[in-house]
């Protein structure tokens, strides 16, 4: 066990856990932030995607000890009122079916648009290929990202 001081969604959090604990389980079990999902536990499906200093990271294989003073952002902290342009675009396109993977999809999409505000279809497809959607909402995800891109660049 060791003590860690994390900044999660702008809030300081002190906790005492095994240093090998993946950030995913710290968020879900210790900080009660369950919007970040468990899907595979080996960075293959993207359901657990969060941001570390604004970059998309798979939290299921990231030990809490590796976070350091980097800012952690989860789906809950993406926007104060749930109205980030990407979240709005997701609602406009009514993207979710079961919805389980969508928090991870949104976090990947936000990181993509931050790095590249006007991605091509191919860039969207390649970046988003780390996030699996078993319901098959990919065409809507792409459409929503393009809508969000327009909003961001307007």
């Amino acid at each position: 066990m060791a003590t860690f001081n994390l900044t999660v969604n702008g809030k300081k959090q002190e906790l005492n856990v095994d240093p090998s604990t993946p950030l995913l389980w710290v968020l879900r079990d210790h900080l009660n932030l369950v919007g970040t999902k468990f899907g595979c536990g080996m960075a293959q499906c993207g359901a657990c995607t969060i941001h570390l200093d604004g970059k998309a990271v798979r939290s299921c294989i990231l030990p809490v000890s590796a976070v350091g003073d980097q800012e952690v952002t989860t789906i809950e902290g993406l926007s104060e009122n749930g109205d980030h342009p990407v979240q709005n675009a997701w609602l406009e396109h009514d993207v979710p079916q079961c919805g389980y993977c969508q928090a991870g999809q949104i976090m990947s999409a936000v990181a993509l648009l931050k790095e590249n505000p006007t991605p091509t279809d191919e860039q969207i497809e390649n970046t988003m290929s780390g996030n699996i959607c078993r319901c098959g909402t990919y065409t809507r995800i792409k459409a929503a990202i393009k809508t969000a891109s327009k909003t961001i660049n307007a």
Binding site: G35, T36, T74, E76, G82, D94, A103
Partner: peptide, 10 residues
């Protein structure tokens, strides 16, 4: 989707 907002905000 009536759960849309809850889904996209986690």
């Amino acid at each position: 989707n009536v759960d849309g907002k809850s889904i996209v905000t986690g």
